[in-house]
């Protein structure tokens, strides 16, 4: 079973992930309408490109925006989670080997200790996010099952992956769970809020361009003081 899951199933879920997210990105861009949004996307390249990049870049930096600085706890939780969530799936040694053997794409790999620390940090970040969701009155007003689903989908691969390492006696069981939950994450990402993996960039770029092209770019230039 593991052969099938880690072979053809892995390739299939990777394909769904990549094609699905690409489709969402394409659908996003194709759905933009300069008249409806009132943003002249094709004009003012001198400031629109920097506007889009600043809008993405500043939010990728911890403390890079007033929004992050205003909410240090939320910021900490997000970044703890996302450092690992971006780096581990792509650069963990086992993942790079699997990726190379199945797709031929060769990526550098993280030192195992660093990967362990990142993974534990991500789980800590997830824990903080869960606590926020449970106890913040704001989040309690907003919570839906979809938000919990996303947290669960994210938690499982991290947790089972870490257990593979720390519970060697049940290695095969944890590994099987890890492969299943990892692939579930890949397959569901394009259809859930996990699609923000690409749509974050689209949406941020759009708002950055809106401010750079229309709302003040003329006076302010491309870089909005996020």
């Amino acid at each position: 079973m593991l052969q099938t899951l880690s072979g053809p199933c892995f390739v299939a879920s990777l394909l769904i992930f990549v094609v699905g997210l690409l489709a969402r990105a394409v659908w996003y861009v194709r759905g933009l309408d300069w008249r409806l949004e009132r943003v002249a996307y094709a004009y003012h390249r001198d400031r629109s490109v920097s506007g889009a990049l600043a809008s993405i870049g500043k939010w990728l930096l911890p403390g890079g925006t007033a929004g992050w600085r205003a909410q240090p706890v939320a910021m900490l939780a997000f970044f703890l989670l996302h450092f690992g969530a971006v780096l581990i799936p792509l650069f963990l040694l086992g993942h790079t080997v699997l990726l190379e053997e199945t797709t031929g794409i060769s990526l550098p790999s993280l030192p195992p200790n660093v990967a362990d620390i990142l993974c534990i940090a991500s789980l800590a970040g997830l824990g903080l996010l869960v606590l926020r969701r449970l106890f913040s009155p704001v989040l309690r007003q907003l919570n839906t099952w979809k938000d919990w689903l996303v947290l669960l989908l994210t938690f499982m691969p991290f947790f089972t992956g870490l257990m593979c390492k720390f519970d060697a006696n049940a290695y095969d069981t944890w590994l099987l769970l890890h492969v299943i939950t990892g692939e579930l994450f890949l397959v569901l990402a394009p259809f859930t809020k996990l699609a923000h993996i690409v749509l974050f960039f689209m949406s941020r770029a759009q708002l950055g361009m809106d401010y750079a092209i229309k709302r003040g770019g003329r006076a302010r230039g491309g870089v909005f003081p996020w």
């Binding site: 052969q3 880690s6 072979g7 086992g94 080997v97 053997e101 290695y171």
Partner: peptide, 21 residues
Amino acid sequence: HQSCTGCHSKSGQGPALVQCR
């Protein structure tokens, strides 16, 4: 990696590539 797990896969015995440990 390819030789070992390739043969394991064909024979239906032995660890798969994902089973690093």
